[in-house]
């Protein structure tokens, strides 16, 4: 039986706006490992394009290293801003934890 590959989890909360740009950048610069990453945004109630840029940069850099990244979010505002920013293809966003983990394990 294969053990489950480990997954790095980054949890973010509250309103991710321009005031938290530096904090977000440092939270998203911790991992250089080869483990898949789940960015848990369940506690995020608002995000602006400053935050989306950081999330996108992190995902694209991970992609270059073949490290899968999944975003878990349930806030209606977050899901809508992703759509308005046309990032629903570039970022893998899940509203269900199990499905996010399935994606990471399968990748």
């Amino acid at each position: 039986m294969n053990p489950e590959p480990s997954i790095g989890v980054i949890t973010l909360n509250g309103e991710l706006d321009i005031a938290r740009k530096d904090e977000l950048r440092s939270a998203l610069s911790v991992t250089q490992s080869a483990h898949p990453v789940l960015i848990d945004l369940v506690g995020v109630t608002y995000a602006d394009s400053t935050a989306l840029s950081e999330l996108l940069r992190f995902s694209l850099e991970a992609q270059e290293r073949n490290v899968p990244v999944a975003l878990l979010a349930i806030s209606p505002q977050f899901l809508r801003v992703i759509e308005y920013a046309r990032l629903d293809q570039a970022l893998r966003v899940f509203t269900d934890r199990e499905r996010a983990l399935e994606y990471l394990h399968a990748s």
Binding site: D17, I18, Y46, D48, S49, T50, P76, Q77, R80, V81
Partner: peptide, 17 residues
């Protein structure tokens, strides 16, 4: 309200930055 706060939030971020 989500649409309006989202749009206005962008304009504010833009101005501030």
């Amino acid at each position: 309200r989500i649409d309006i706060v989202t749009a206005v939030g962008e304009a504010l971020a833009n101005t501030i930055e």
